[in-house]
C-alpha cells in the first residue's frame, strides 16, 4: 500500500489531480489558478520602486502567496515522508546524451552534477540557474502566465490566446533543449 504512494505516480493519476486544483480554487473563493503571478506580488510587496506595473493592492492576492508557500511545504513533505528510494527512470537515449556531458547522478529532482552551489561560479551554472531563472520570470510575465495559468487554467476555460501561449512555451523549450542546451552543457 505505502509503496504505491511512494512510487512515482503515473500520469493518469497525477494529471487529473492537478486538474482538480482549478475547480477547487474557484469554488473555495473565486481564485483563478496561476503560479507565476506570485513572482509579481513579491515584486509589488518588496520592491515596487514606483513602477506602475507594481502599483496595485497586492494584499488582495495574498492568497496566491499562501498557495505558493503551500507548494514549498508540499515539496518538503513529499520529499521527506513519501520519498521513492529509486532514482528517476530516464529514457536511455537521454541517459546516453547526459553521460557524454558529465551528468550521471539521477538521485535528485534537479541533476546535482549541474545544479549546485559551487557551479554558480561557472559560466555553465550561471546560464542554467541565473539565466534560466531570469527567462522564467521575464517570459512568464511577458506572456501573462505560465504552465498553470495558460496551459491548464486558460486552455481548460477555452481561451484560445492561452493555447497560442502554450504552443510558444513548447516551441521555446524544443529549440532550447535540442539546439542550444547541448552547447551549454559542453561549456
Amino acid at each position: 500500500m505505502l509503496s504505491t504512494i511512494t512510487a512515482p505516480w503515473p500520469w493518469y493519476v497525477s494529471g487529473p489531480l492537478i486538474g482538480l486544483t482549478v475547480p477547487l480554487l474557484l469554488l473555495l473563493g473565486n481564485k483563478t489558478f496561476g503560479v507565476s503571478s506570485s513572482l509579481r506580488h513579491i515584486c509589488a510587496a518588496c520592491f515596487p520602486s514606483d513602477i506602475p506595473f507594481f502599483q496595485y493592492d497586492w494584499r488582495k492576492e495574498t492568497w496566491n502567496l499562501f498557495f505558493v508557500a503551500g507548494i514549498l511545504g508540499g515539496g518538503f513533505l513529499a520529499a521527506h515522508f513519501l520519498i521513492d528510494p529509486n532514482p528517476v527512470a530516464v529514457n536511455p537515449q537521454l541517459q546516453e546524451f547526459l553521460k557524454a556531458n558529465g551528468v550521471s547522478d539521477y538521485s535528485g529532482m534537479v541533476p546535482h552534477d549541474l545544479f549546485n552551489w559551487p557551479a554558480l561560479g561557472t559560466l555553465k551554472g550561471l546560464i542554467l540557474m541565473v539565466g534560466g531563472g531570469f527567462l522564467v520570470g521575464f517570459g512568464t510575465r511577458y506572456a501573462g502566465g505560465c504552465t498553470s495559468g495558460h496551459s491548464i487554467m486558460g486552455i481548460s476555460t477555452l481561451q484560445w490566446p492561452s493555447l497560442v501561449a502554450t504552443m510558444c512555451f513548447m516551441a521555446g523549450g524544443f529549440i532550447m533543449a535540442n539546439l542550444v542546451l547541448p552547447f551549454i552543457l559542453r561549456l
Binding site: 503560479v35 511577458y142 506572456a143 495558460h150 512555451f169 521555446g172 523549450g173 532550447m176
Partner: peptide, 19 residues
C-alpha cells in the same frame, strides 16, 4: 504571449522548472 512564451519556454528547458 508569443515573445514571452518563447522566452519562458527557453527558461523552462534550462531550469527544468516552471514557476
Amino acid at each position: 504571449l508569443v515573445f514571452g512564451g518563447l522566452l519562458f519556454g527557453c527558461g523552462w528547458a534550462l531550469t527544468g522548472a516552471c514557476p
